[in-house]
Every structure is written in structure tokens, then in C-alpha cells.
Amino acid sequence: MNTPPHQSNLSVLLKMEAAIDAHDIDALVNCFANDFVGEQPVHPERNVTGAEQVRKNWTGIFAQVPDIQAKLVTHTIAGDIGWSEWHWQGNQTNGTAFNLRGAVVTGLRENTIAWARLYMEPVQI
């Protein structure tokens, strides 16, 4: 029996969450299409292109926040579009807290994230 497309699209978000929690860079990069395009509309200087740029960015995050954990707070999938709310937190190597929350809109293709618009911001405490 085949998995309905919306369930397989959801599985890539769950795989991403598990890969971040495990600090498994290869599993995380495998969640993204090779031609991935990531936009941060509020911070366009942070835009990324390609799965290898995802690897470079997340390798840096794992190094700076060695205990980072991700929580997929809520999500919905409609066809090949996903809307998700995330909470990423941990402690940076400089001793300061890393605590981001926000929404991510994703375009999903063949069990990968083809594009994303991230609206992640630091939690103000």
C-alpha cells in the first residue's frame, strides 16, 4: 500500500526534526532537494541555495550550539505545501542561550524540501 502524498510530505518534516535532535548532518541534508532555495524574507542576507549550503550552515549551527534540539510544534500539509511552527533551542559555545521560534513555509517535492521561507526569530526573555 502506498503512503498518501500528504503523509510522505509530513515525514520529511519529522525526519528533519529527528536529524536536528541527533545532530546528524547527513540525515538533515538528505531532507533537502539538491536545488533547494531557502529564503528568510525578514533577513534576505541569510538566503541560501542548494543542499550543500544547507550542509555548511547547519554544520556551523551544530558546532556553535552542540546541544541544539528542535521541536516541530505544529504543522499542516496541503498537497505539496507545508506550514510548520518550530522551536529550536540549546546553549551556544559562548554560554548564551540559543532560542528561536517561528514558522516555516515549505514546498515539498519527492519527500524532500524543495524550497522554504523561514520566519524564525529569537525568543525575547
Rank of each mutant, 00 (worst) to 15 (best):
P122T: 12
A78N: 13
D35E: 15
T74H: 08
H6N: 08
N9K: 03
G60D: 14
N2T: 07
T3M: 14
V42D: 12
A51M: 01
A19R: 02
N94Q: 05
H43V: 04
I61G: 04
M1D: 04
Y119N: 06
A18N: 11
Q124D: 14
N47A: 11
M16W: 08
V73G: 03
N2Q: 12
V12F: 10
P122D: 14
K71G: 04
N91T: 15
E52Q: 14
T49F: 13
W115V: 01
H6A: 08
V105A: 07
M16K: 13
I68M: 15
S84E: 05
N57G: 05
N30H: 09
G82T: 05
R55D: 08
R46M: 13
I113Q: 02
V73W: 03
V12I: 15
Q69Y: 06
A114Q: 14
S11F: 07
E52N: 10
A103P: 01
I68W: 09
N111G: 11
G90E: 07
T96S: 11
T59P: 01
A78T: 13
N57W: 02
A18D: 13
D80T: 14
W88E: 06
A114R: 12
N2P: 07
A63W: 06
T59Y: 02
N2M: 04
N91K: 11
T96D: 08
P44R: 06
A103C: 12
P122R: 11
P41M: 03
E121I: 07
R109K: 13
E121A: 15
L72A: 09
L14C: 09
W88Q: 05
F32W: 08
S8Q: 15
W86S: 03
L118S: 12
T96F: 06
E45H: 11
P44G: 08
W88A: 10
Q92C: 12
V12K: 11
I61Y: 10
H23P: 01
V123W: 03
S8F: 01
E85V: 15
G38Q: 03
W115S: 13
I77T: 09
V42R: 13
F98C: 03
G38Y: 05
T106R: 14
